[in-house]
Design a binder for these strands. Structure first.
Lengths: 360, 360
DNA sequence: CTGGAGTTTGTAAGCGCTTACATCCATTGA
DNA sequence: TCAATGGATGTAAGCGCTTACAAACTCCAG
């Protein structure tokens, strides 16, 4: 039995005085005074050391150390009109879908001494716009966005401000933005083709909400195309849209499997939902894949946790992150933008198997 | 069989010219001119609207809209000496441990119109220091840090700069910093007590690296204390330290279970490792919990995915995030700092059971 | 009417940094 | 010896914003 309880012991206060704020951050001027040079020299030491004589540089650096000086970002951005920081705005940090990609993005940036700012939108277009404005206001030199489904006004804004954008996790033919992604529709189609070739005829899908989510829509479309190509009426697809979480996937699957016309195949918009679907099926006493096959999408680590493991689409997350960073870092004002399309592949782990007509 | 392959189709270029950068961001002055008021009035409209007459305000806001004006953060921070942004520096985004807490942190901040900046350290103390300096340079009004194990110099820096810090996910008695967390040692101790009461005598632990990780150390210590209290030599604890990932947990478990003296209980530093341990045990044909019991820590969603589900310690992630935000937002310069200690609880899901002496 | 209080708006001085330009100094070749 | 050269450093003008202070206006009691 689960026991979950919490009690907060609040406000236990310990008296302690901060030892007299010495007056905030040291400034360039403080360093300059300490090293008896001008602020210009200090600035040069920090930004283009080769312009300063070794002797002076040493003295300045010592002063920097002594004062534990850290340049003020805002002031620097204001004066230099660039920040060497790039923003990444992702729908959620809650599951690991974007984590690996972001990690790679950050690593690629840091090689060139650039830093990453992350923000998440909770799949809310308004919040996304807010976050975009936020990062722009913070001086981001470029932005990584997931998918390309957002109001034209947002793209206008970015174009107006001259801020390079890379759309990732999807392909985009939008003029003026680069993208690095994969063909969600095709990948889903291929997985569905493989599944339908195993004899499944009663198909269901658990998807993320398709509104303002081009990846989810493309995946759904791929499945429908496959159904049509395999002589199954795509209208017969039982579809549930829900949030990405194991619990939601479980609920959705249970709902579907209780139906009169029980599907023999549940294709899921991502691995998290699929893991939930597997749990759901089991909770009804059904065997996966014996009674019902389940497929995922993304190939995150959790895909190997379910029993059986998830048959899913492997997505090159790390490659995407790295490539996105490259695109942003190498961006020039030529107006040319690149389209990088990566390949996906199907990973078989056991949750998908042949449908034996008698068994359903 | 798994097939994983990728091929990049690189550099497919589409010609498109960005339609002549209209010259970057509009400024306060642009808005002022557009609305025929002074920059001061515009600034007031944005920051304390009640100080401006309704008529003027309307005119200004219209201009803001028309120009799609977004204030420049750097300049604002420079002039106002506060940013209303708070930084959260977490060890990793890779697994969901911190995701829920951060989500709650962000939500609590946004209620007060503050924004969150996230950075991750990959469990690297040097990188953490870099990220701290980075966020400080960006003008963070306060910082959320995980655990309190870091060089004194870092705390000195923060204190010197007068930047409020909240340590989360652990308790800290460090003077001058607030904390909101739980007693990692006690929680681990309680879980171990429960496990040892079930008759286990040969115990192993898979932990995160304990170097510069006070949470991991505290959990280990809790287990050792419990062993001692239960008449088992804590030196007999078989310990493996590794990175948080399912795969590592699996590898570690396999190593342990192949040993001559096979443990009947593997306690893990967190759920991700525990999930891996369950996989590992199964891959050796062992039954969980029949042949070996496994426990986790954190109670993240994935804990219900394994079969059996993980018996683990429930940690009030969301509460922590929210409370941390409160502490930061309500910080005053009084020098008083708060200690918020939340309770944990044990969640039983099946991966821990009585050890039947004959069976090992 | 008029003076003072209260409200609304404008003026201008920075915030901490970068960088174009000016200045200074040590070399060097004629 | 001196002008020309070039490297090292300093000077100072902003970057876009906030805010103390001043100015202007409104309103009403006297």
């Amino acid at each position: 039995m689960n026991r979950i309880f919490n009690r907060a012991i609040l406000g236990q206060t310990m008296g302690m005085n901060i030892p007299s704020r010495s007056g905030g951050q040291p400034t360039l001027e403080d360093v300059a005074r300490e090293a008896t040079v001008s602020t210009a020299t200090v600035s040069r030491c920090l930004n283009s050391p080769e312009q300063v004589s070794a002797k002076t540089r040493e003295r300045v650096m010592a002063a920097v150390e002594r004062l534990r000086y850290t340049p003020n970002f805002g002031a620097r951005a204001l004066a230099a009109k660039r920040t060497n920081t790039f923003g990444a705005i992702i729908p959620t940090m809650d599951n690991a879908i974007f984590a690996r990609g972001l990690q790679a993005f950050q690593e690629a940036l840091s090689v060139r001494n650039a830093t990453m700012l992350v923000a998440s939108t909770n799949y809310d277009p308004d919040l996304e716009e807010k976050q975009i404005r936020n990062l722009v206001a913070r001086g981001a030199d470029g932005l990584l966005l997931i998918g390309d489904d957002r109001p034209e006004a947002v793209y206008d804004l970015l174009r107006e401000r001259g801020i390079p954008v890379v759309v990732a996790w999807a392909l985009s033919e939008r003029p003026g933005v680069s993208c690095v992604g994969f063909d969600n529709r095709l990948a889903a189609r291929q997985l569905a083709d493989a599944a339908l070739a195993l004899g499944h005829r009663t198909v269901a899908m658990i998807s993320a909400h398709t509104k303002s989510n081009d990846r989810a829509r493309a995946r759904l479309e791929g499945i429908r195309q496959s159904m049509t190509a395999n002589g199954i009426d795509p209208k017969s697809l039982r579809l549930v849209e829900t949030n990405y979480s194991i619990k939601r996937g479980m609920e959705a699957a249970i709902g579907m499997l209780r139906d009169g016309q029980r599907p023999t195949l549940i294709m899921c918009g991502n691995d998290v939902l699929a893991a939930g679907a597997v749990m759901g099926a089991k909770s009804l006493g059904l065997d996966v894949p014996g009674d019902v096959s389940v497929t995922g999408f993304d190939d995150i680590e959790l895909a190997m946790l379910t029993e059986p493991g998830l048959t899913t689409v492997h997505v090159p997350h790390r490659q995407m992150g790295r490539a996105a960073a490259q695109l942003l870092l190498d961006h020039d004002d030529s107006g040319m933008n690149k389209l990088v399309c990566l390949d996906t592949s199907i990973v078989e782990r056991g949750s998908l198997s042949r449908h034996v007509p008698g068994s359903a």
